[in-house]
Structure formats: structure tokens, C-alpha cells
Design a binder for these strands. Sequence first.
DNA 1: CTGAAAGCGCTTACAG
DNA 2: CTGAAAGCGCTTACAG
Lengths: 341, 341
Amino acid sequence: MKKSVKIQDVAKVAGVSTATISRALSNPSVVSKATREAVLEAVKVTGYRVNRAARNLRTRKSNTILVLLPDIGNPFFSQILQGIQTVLSPRGFSMLIAETGQISAAGEHLIDYFDDGRADGMIVFDGGLDRDVARDLVEAPQRNQVVFACEWLNNADFPSVRSANRRGAVEAVKHLIELGHKKIAHIKGPEGNVLTDARFESYVKALEENDIPVREEWIFAGDFDLNSGRDVARKIMKMNEKPTAIFCASDQIACALISEFSKNNVKVPDEMAVIGFDDIELAEHFVPALTTMRQDRLGLGRQAAEILLSRMMNDKAISDSDVIVMDVDLVVRESTAPPKN
Amino acid sequence: MKKSVKIQDVAKVAGVSTATISRALSNPSVVSKATREAVLEAVKVTGYRVNRAARNLRTRKSNTILVLLPDIGNPFFSQILQGIQTVLSPRGFSMLIAETGQISAAGEHLIDYFDDGRADGMIVFDGGLDRDVARDLVEAPQRNQVVFACEWLNNADFPSVRSANRRGAVEAVKHLIELGHKKIAHIKGPEGNVLTDARFESYVKALEENDIPVREEWIFAGDFDLNSGRDVARKIMKMNEKPTAIFCASDQIACALISEFSKNNVKVPDEMAVIGFDDIELAEHFVPALTTMRQDRLGLGRQAAEILLSRMMNDKAISDSDVIVMDVDLVVRESTAPPKN
DNA sequence: CTGAAAGCGCTTACAG
DNA sequence: CTGAAAGCGCTTACAG
């Protein structure tokens, strides 16, 4: 077993200096063809691999991107991560994953990842970031190496990639209106979340634009998770005057809502039309198949990584912060239908 | 803005040597109380953070664990990752995520992560690892820093954490038998997968133990994904002699299967009982709620991380490789019932 | 309990 | 196009 080959060993085999080995590996065009080939051969023979810690120390780079998630356990992020990895991996960057809660639990701050050289850049999926965790990030010299995705920070203009939440929510509600619904409820996402607000406000807007009064009792506090769907279903079933359609802030809410309705023999879509948001993998296979607004999660991850990398390369100025809004598509399936008077 | 504080700066402020700073930080008990406090104060004042690359280079450790997934986009892994992170984070380890396909696409090998110092240990979730990607891993000096999880390698006894796939599959089939079913089909996972084999063999075993003949035509090739469920549903509906119950190798298969049945008015569970495997989040909220074998994904991730870390600390011998089998629970919900007539 | 000094394995001006 | 040499920022025997 070869024991930790170092650049010295390769230099000896190739008969050149370590400087040349280094150049041949990281900037091949700068050495002669003959040398390059000799070096590559020596690398192969010895099984040499550049020691990352040494390189990182010397270059002051980590070639690592931190991906900060509000909740690693949420399957919503799986495809997003894949999109990110798709971009990062071929460019030689590694993906480090962390959870907001764990950073604050450890008494750390996001900026520490820059300060101690663990990451060169970060993609943040948490717009509800603890003030303390985000401390100093806005004024930091590395603020150009930060991109928000899905969610965003309200009082700081970091570049960000997000879905067309407002247009999507308006379209979702309009879809219900066009089917003939006038009694349309909304189940919100978690309190204080930027997506919750964007989608809720758009729900209100869509109703108002169509001269449909907004009724407080049909606006339900929620969460993006499954449980809130079930809970709201129970509340609705107890109401005297029920809505005929429901716009849910997420597919998970919608699925759990429908599930509870089904258990209690409330027919979806006939007695109650339901539309979600996200188009999670299972939406298509749910019973009934879920009508929803599709978010391109793979593309979102890819875009976020792309924009981060390009910012890191170009070292763009702070001012021109990009906001990329990803298209969103209405996918009509089985969970929506006209109201049955 | 403080520009990259280094240990020298802290030493100056605290009025001690850099050696003492280093000790006070990584081995506090070895310095006097007074010094320790002075150092901590100086650290706070300066905002010092240990440069990871320098520390890693010096200690020849990365404090990073590679998590290798066959497919990052598969939501099945979300909670597992969370379980891993739960253990890693408080112990100061970072989690690096990679995908098997991307490693081989880059012409890399797993062992490279050790050789170039990117990782101190790894948790591998892919038992179908490319021979080339896994090359040299079995004989490597670092083989003690490798743990397999969920899946495992057949010809190498790495420590591994897995669910009780065989017992679980037997129980799942027995559940159907106890309900009175005799015509029981099986939809397999992907060809060549160790879980596929374990669950399939147990299906056969359970049938044989109960003197129920195994019928080739009711054994379907599949995949753990949604599509195979839909495809098999179509095949079954065309059969003259249909099974009355189906054991699916995954919940995703089961959901898509039921979905397709529902669309075609085949009633689950009355005309067709369906049991899955995994207990994904949505199983409970599916319509009908899915009967399944629950895998403790959070616990699995936690265990894998735990056992890896303890091996790394104790530097256990190669021979005593652990296999931890995690309990699995039958969760009876709405998708299974006795056969009608 | 503490300090001076070596060295981890690279990369990169600098000089030729 | 190539080499000699400095230095990235730590940690850790060694000595006291």
C-alpha cells in the first residue's frame, strides 16, 4: 500500500521540481507538453493526490460550498440538493450541508464558515434565519459569496433564486375561480415565512381582482407540513358555511387535507376542490392526483449554484444583486373541479 | 472589519505564546485556569477562529465525514441525513455529501477522499457500488473508517447498519396471509440490489412456510420508484387470474400502484390489498392510508454515524466488523384487508 | 504549566 | 518553460 504520496515523490519520479508538478496539475498550459506528460505519468505511477488541506491553506480557498437548510429532514430539498450537486461536482466544488438550528445550537454564526475557511461560498435556504446566526453577514467582505434560494431575507438584498411565488399563487387561485368557485379558502405556510406571506398576499389579491370578498374565517394558519392539512380539514368539516375550494400553501398540506377529507367521506374534488403548491413527486400519484403549481426544484438548485459560482468568479460588486425568479407551472390533475351547487 | 485574525494576533493580545493559545483551545485542561481565561477573553476580543485548513494540514485530519448516496434526489434519504447530522454536528464533524454517479463520472474513487484528506470517514448508502469507484477500499488502511448503511457490500464485511429486511418482509407477507390471502404478488426493487434480494427471498420464504405455492407470474420486476408501481398495476389489471394482495418492495411502489388501481376503479383494499415497505412520511396520509413496514430512518442515520465515530476513535481491528440490524415495525393502516368472498 | 521551533504539503512570486 | 525558496496558519514533541 502506497503511504501518502506527496508532491516531492512525484517530483522525484518525474525528474522535475515540485513547482513544476504543481503547475502541470493546476495550470497545465503553462508547462511544456513533454513535461506535462512526464508529470501525468509520474502521477499515475505513484497514485499521487493533492493534499487538500495543504492546497487550501496555501491558496486560502476551500473549494467547498455550504448549503444551509432550515430542515435537512424535509424531502422537499432532495431534488434541490441534486440540482446543486450537478453544478458543483463537475467544477470541483464539494457540498457541505448544515442546518440552521444546529449552527445556532453550537453557538456558531454563518460567517464563521468563511472566517475559518470551511467554505468559499454559501447557498442559504432559510429566510427566517436567526438574527444571531446571520450576524455580520450583511456587512461581511464575503457577502458576494452568498446566495439565497427558495426563501430570502427581507431587509438585505442578497442575490437570490426563487420561484414565481406571487404569480403562481395568483394563478392557482384563478384556476379555482375559473372553475366557478367563489368560496375559496387558504391554508397558509408557517407564520413569518416569506413564502407564506407572498402566497397569502397573492391569494388575497386574486380574490380582490375578481371581486370576491376575502373571508377571515377561511384563512387558516398552517405550516408547510402534513399535520396542518389534517387539522384544517377537521376545522372545515365542522363549519356551518364551508368553502368549496381550498388553495394550500404546499402539496404536503394539500395531501394531508385530502386524506382527512377522504376518511370522512368528503369527496375531493366534487365536494371540495383542492390545489397545492410545489408538485412534489407524489402529487401525481396521489389519490386523487393533485392539481398544483409546479416548482422546478432541480432547476432552482442548479440556478442557485450557477449564480453563486459566477459571482464568486467575477467578484461582482455588492450593489448589482440579482434576483432570479423561476417559472412556475399550473398542473391540472384530479383534485380540482367546478363546484357542484 | 477584522481581517483574518490568526493565532499570532490572539497570542499578542493574551500575552502568551501561540502554543498556549492552541492548547487552551483544543486541550483546555492542560493550561492553568488563569491562562485559559485570558486566552478565551483574547479570542472573544479578536474574534479569532481556527483556520481549518491549517489545522487539518497539521493534524492530518479533516473532521469531515463523507456521506455517499446512490441518489441525492431521493427523498428517502432526507431523514437519514438528518439522523447523521444530529450525531456529527455536536461532535464537531462536518457532513460532505456526494453521489456515486458523480464520483465515477469524475473518474474518482472513494478512497481518494481519504488519500487527499477530504474525509476522515465515510458512510456509504450504496451496496451496488461500481467496482471501480470502490477500488482498493477493502484493502485500504482506512477500511475501519467506512460504514455501510441501509445497503451493504456482499463480498466485503464492512461494518453496517441496516433494517431487518428479511424479518420485515416475512412479517409483511405473513400479515397478508393472516388476513386470509393466498394469492400474493410481489413487486421487487431494482435488479441486483441487496435489499431487493433480501425482501424477495423473504417473500418466497414466507409463502413456502405457509405452503403457498410461489407463482412466477406474480413476481414483478421493479424499482423502488414510483413508476414501476404504475406499470405493474397496469399489468396486473390485464391478467386473467389476478392476485388478491401485493407486497411492494417500497412505499413509493405501493403508492403509485394504488394510484393506478384507483384510477381504474380497482378498490384498495377490498379488491386488492397492498402493503409497502419504508413508511415514508406520506404513507400515513395516503388514500387509503398505507399499511407498511416501518424503517426507522432517523435512527438508522444516527446509528451509522455513531458506529462510524466510535470505530474511528477506537481504531478497532478489521476483523470484528459489526452488523447492526435495526428493528422494523408493521404499521397496519387502510390499504390491507381480508380478501372479499 | 509554558515557550521556541520545527514542520504538515502544498503554491507562487521571483529570478533566470 | 522551470527551479529554489518562502510561507500559508496551525499543532506538538521537546525542553524547561
